[in-house]
């Protein structure tokens, strides 16, 4: 899978960021707005930080967010989707109505509200992403759980006296694993995009070195696109983001085809 190869490169860059980056991304290693040079291959940003170093360290934020937020999303979605699908009844109705409401809510105001409630920072950003994304995944997981619940071996485990926790842990979640892997990867892709979007909107930790924030600061410079500065300041983080999101999406689609050829996505 070429997607995994590219993802591995991203992970390596993130892990080896202190070795690879020429400067501390927070250090004022040059004058503001330097053009590319030997000392600063991608120039410097508006306060004189090395853009290449920012870019390399930015992979860390994106991947941490991808990992944590997607796991948070899938954990929440699994908890709620599997509980609703498995237990059914009024709980299912209540949870799914809640999901419907959350899905119907406009995202942007919800984002801003959550950001206001939770404050800025990477953990908050991760929490916001997880809180935003779980409903859609929960719905898919619920549908799958419902069909699993009708499977004989799960009915038998329940009949034997297997409690909800046991059946979920032993049967439902393992049976959901391929779907969860898919949701995880797709949520990771969306999380990367949303983190960038949040950083871009200024919701989040403004001192973090993330690609979204790099783009935000670049675009904050009036007339950036009128000159050639965007070539080394805006384009690299945008390209990295696009590549990472595309990579994760490709892996997700690959997983979907491989493990769940008959899986029906949202009806």
């Amino acid at each position: 899978m070429p997607g995994l190869g590219i993802l591995t490169i991203f992970v390596l860059v993130a892990l080896l960021a202190p070795v690879l980056a020429p400067y501390d991304p927070h250090a004022l290693s040059g004058q503001p707005l330097e053009r590319p040079s030997a000392a600063h291959p991608l120039g410097t940003n508006d306060i004189g930080q090395d853009i290449l170093s920012e870019l390399i360290f930015g992979a860390r934020i994106s991947l941490i967010v991808a990992l944590a937020a997607s796991m948070g999303t899938v954990a929440l979605a699994t908890l709620i989707g599997a509980a609703a699908g498995y237990l059914g009844g009024w709980l299912d109705t209540a949870l799914m109505r809640g999901v419907d409401v959350l899905l119907a809510l406009p995202r942007l105001p919800l984002l801003i509200l959550l950001a206001a409630l939770l404050g800025a920072g990477l953990p908050q950003t991760i929490a916001i992403i997880a809180l935003l994304f779980w409903p859609a995944a929960a719905r898919t997981i619920r549908a799958q759980t419902q069909s699993l619940r009708r499977r004989g071996y799960i009915q038998m485990a329940r009949q034997l006296g297997g409690g909800t926790g046991y059946v979920l842990r032993r049967h439902i979640v393992p049976a959901l694993a391929p779907l969860l892997a898919f949701e995880l990867v797709m949520a990771a892709g969306r999380a990367v995009a949303l983190e960038a979007g949040l950083a871009f909107l200024g919701i989040g930790d403004a001192a973090a070195k993330s690609w979204g924030l790099m783009m935000r600061f670049a675009l904050n410079l009036p007339g950036l696109l009128l000159g050639d500065r965007w070539l080394w300041w805006l384009l690299p983080p945008a390209a990295c983001l696009t590549l990472l999101i595309l990579t994760l999406t490709c892996i997700g689609i690959g997983l979907e085809e491989r493990w769940q050829p008959r899986l029906k996505r949202r009806p």
């Binding site: 004989g152 038998m156 049976a175």
Partner: peptide
């Protein structure tokens, strides 16, 4: 104890 009609369905594939 109950033995179901279809063992493919009644036994976990995992």
């Amino acid at each position: 104890q109950y033995i179901a009609q279809d063992p493919f369905d009644a036994l976990s594939p995992r």
